[in-house]
Computed example of a mutant assay.
Amino acid sequence: MSGRTRWFGATGRRVPEIALEGSLEVEGALDLAGLDAAALRDAHGRGVPVLAHAATAAEVRAALAHPEVSCVLVRDPALLELDLADLTYG
C-alpha cells in the first residue's frame, strides 16, 4: 500500500491514496468511473469522500491530480508501488 494518505472526505479518517479494490471500507463515498469536475466539486463541498478507479499509472496520476479524490482504487498490485513524484516531475 502507498505510504501517502489523504482525507476520506469529512469523515476524519485518512486512507491510502492508492489501494486495491475491495481492501478498504468505502461506504458513503462517491464512486466515480470517470473524473467529472462538477461531481468532484459537489462531493467535496458536501464533505463526501470521492473514489476513482485506475488501470494504468497515467490514470492513477490523473486521478490524484484532483485534490477532491480521496483514494484511487486499482486492481493491479504493481500500481501500489508507483513513484508518483517521478511520474509527476520526471
Rank of each mutant, 00 (worst) to 15 (best):
M1P: 01
A63V: 00
L32C: 07
P67M: 12
R61D: 06
G22D: 04
E27N: 08
A52H: 04
T11Y: 10
P77G: 09
L87F: 02
R13E: 14
A10G: 10
G22A: 15
D86G: 10
S23Q: 07
R46H: 11
A54N: 00
G90K: 12
P16D: 08
E59Y: 01
D36L: 11
G90S: 14
R46D: 14
T56K: 12
V69D: 10
L87R: 05
R41K: 14
V69Y: 07
V48T: 13
G3Q: 07
R46W: 07
H66V: 00
R46N: 08
E59G: 05
W7Y: 15
E81V: 03
F8M: 12
P77A: 13
A19R: 04
C71V: 12
C71K: 04
D31I: 04
V72W: 01
A37G: 04
A37E: 15
P16T: 04
H66Y: 06
L73H: 01
T88Y: 07
A33L: 11
L32S: 01
G45C: 13
L73W: 00
V69T: 08
T88N: 10
A39S: 06
T5F: 11
R61Y: 03
M1T: 05
A52Y: 03
P16W: 10
A62V: 03
V15C: 11
S70F: 10
A29E: 05
C71T: 15
R13F: 08
A58W: 06
A33G: 10
A29V: 03
L64K: 03
L40G: 05
P77T: 05
V15F: 09
A55C: 12
E68S: 13
L35E: 03
E68W: 09
H44F: 14
E59C: 04
M1F: 06
F8E: 11
T56F: 15
D76W: 15
A29S: 13
T56W: 11
I18H: 03
E25Y: 05
H53K: 08
L30E: 08
V74N: 03
A33H: 09
I18N: 04
A52F: 00
D36M: 07
R46V: 02
M1I: 04
L79D: 02
D86F: 08
T5Q: 15
A58F: 09
G34E: 14
C71G: 04
A19V: 00
S70T: 09
L30N: 02
A85F: 00
D31C: 15
E68K: 09
R75W: 01
A55F: 08
L84H: 00
A55V: 12
A38E: 13
D36Q: 06
L24T: 01
S70N: 11
A85M: 02
D76M: 13
V60A: 12
V60Q: 07
V50I: 13
L35N: 01
E17V: 04
L82C: 09
D76T: 11
R13I: 12
V60L: 10
A52R: 02
E81M: 13
R6G: 07
F8P: 00
G9R: 10
V26M: 10
P67A: 15
G47N: 14
L79Q: 03
